[in-house]
Amino acid sequence: MAFPQPKPQAPQLPQHLLRTIDCKQGAVRAVRFNADGNYVLSCGSDKSLKLWSVNRGTFLKTYSGHGYEVLDADGSYDNSQLCSCSSDKTVILWDVATGQVTRKLRGHAGKVNCVQFNEEATVILSGSIDGRVRCWDTRSRKFEPIQILDEARDSISSIKVAQHELLTGSVDGRVRRYDLRMGQLHVDFISSPITCVCFSQDGQCTLSSSLDSSVRLFDKSTGEMLGEYTGHKMKGYKLDCCLSSKDTHVLSCSEDGHVYCWDLVEGSLSLKLPVGKGVVQSLSFHPTETCLLTAMEGRVQVWGTEPEEEKDDAMT
């Protein structure tokens, strides 16, 4: 048709359940896409880390070696390594293929809440309940961290890396952004304990969810608030939030068993995805496609835009 479409096509939302994966590893503490979005890491409370295929929902490998529940995990850019952190105060660097522990990094004084590779997987950054972020060198054989960021006054709940910037959210109600290139530390006071922080895909904004049941979008450079997203319930648990792959929507877990999805610009609730009755503990958005992973209790659910034809049960 010669006429332009009267309305631009609304961005797709992952509102259809594609499959449910019963991870059988206790409660799933965190669920993460790998770098290209083909695989899923699930961190179980039974000390195991499991690798799944997203498309088929098949179980691929278990990585066991933690002494307590696994709280977070991340995959390297080349899918050759994994890192995971646990309540046993350790961070483990895994070899994906063999499932062996490449390195077990001890040093945190408490359980390690979050872990993240840098872009080239040369550094592992881990934030712990002891209020410190430790930067571990994956290249060297030393077991001491390169640097310890001890500026936070309370537990580090979330950490993200984007290029030369580290973003940490802490229970002391501050989002700290360490700019390595500028050598500066920007502290944004939010006053409520931060549960999760995110960079936007373009790297210009930061998203932070806090325990006052609101998710806020900040301008990275000035610290001004661009948007506030409320309606969900996040009062006690460390739940995740994220941005969609195209930065069109803000998603957050909620304690009422839903995933809330807001339009980023308008701030209006565009989707309230019912996941279950429990608390949606963790979620992860596909890096490129419109695909969402949610973790509630022992299951991981995969959500997509289109309902899949053959709904084979993943619990084989």
């Binding site: 304990p193 648990y237 460390k238 429990g278």
Partner: peptide, 9 residues
């Protein structure tokens, strides 16, 4: 636990 918690399993 300190701070925000993990949901009960």
């Amino acid at each position: 636990e300190f701070g925000p918690k993990l949901p009960p399993p």
